[in-house]
Design a protein around this nucleic acid. Sequence first.
DNA 1: GAGATATCCGACCGAACTAGTCCATCTTAG
DNA 2: CTAAGATGGACTAGTTCGGTCGGATATCTC
Lengths: 154, 154
Amino acid sequence: MLRLSKKTDYALLAVRHLAANADRGAVSARELAETYDIPPELLAKVLQKLVRGRLLESQQGIRGGYALARAASAMSVADVIQAVDGPLMVTACSEDDHSCDQYSKCNIRDPLWRIKDRIIAALGATSVAELAMEMPAPLPLPAGVLPLQMVKRP
Amino acid sequence: MLRLSKKTDYALLAVRHLAANADRGAVSARELAETYDIPPELLAKVLQKLVRGRLLESQQGIRGGYALARAASAMSVADVIQAVDGPLMVTACSEDDHSCDQYSKCNIRDPLWRIKDRIIAALGATSVAELAMEMPAPLPLPAGVLPLQMVKRP
DNA sequence: GAGATATCCGACCGAACTAGTCCATCTTAG
DNA sequence: CTAAGATGGACTAGTTCGGTCGGATATCTC
Ligand code: SF4
Ligand code: SF4
């Protein structure tokens, strides 16, 4: 169904919070968890993955916590997703994984990979910094944005 | 992990096949299943969903089968995905489903929805007709039978 | 009309994945 | 030393996904 996982949601929430509060030092996992009502242990795991993905720096010890490892503007949501959920792919197959039963007879692979590239581009185009600055004006929604055609149900 | 389901793969494969062989009449589910090595009963379910989604027409009876309900060029892969897997969404929440625990405190919602729109656009921009015209199929076609392309008037 | 070949539909099952939990260890400020 | 915090692995409940089964219905051919 193309939905991104809850862990990714948590990761984005946390990363956005860290970007917005970059001036303060490290922020503890517990503080993050309480702020957003996230199960602390689960969030801890997500944060660890982000550290392993070189997106966050961790500070152990009694005044420890997490902070961004690089500028929020240099960190895309695609980076966050990949750090948490592994390499993102829209098809089960990939350049080096031909394990799909239909691989040899499949002729929709190339178009789908092209679509995948466009999705990755869309994900890579939005930086964490853009997530951090938000809120005041309820989006300016210009005319002429037709999101999706709905199927008419009688 | 953002991957689209196997059923969607099957649906796209089938729909592409139907688009490429639109000149012949209805194609039976069994023929499709054998051509692509798909479990017949599962493919049948997928095809039924496509019928219910108004993308295919079905013909019952002894010479029955499936055919496209409209021109391949007027059918996007987004349509196919939605018919098979339901409305596609990248977040667990939506305009009318606020069931997420973080909904009230969530401030990444709007950016993510914007990304969702871009993904839907990418999916909607590719038509089934575009899938159909690609690579001369390495299928064991009888000699002389060439997949006919869609007639395009410039 | 009989039978063969199709689609159609719901129920079912096992495997895989997801979200969440528990616990045990390591690290560091105070 | 000790309390607060990170780290890591193992574990469980719940859900989804891929696949299967059985039966009902429609329609063509003979
Ligand atoms: S069906 Fe084609 S595109 Fe989908 S996973 Fe198999 S090979 Fe890749
Ligand atoms: S976290 Fe925010 S974006 Fe993700 S599902 Fe909940 S409300 Fe929607």
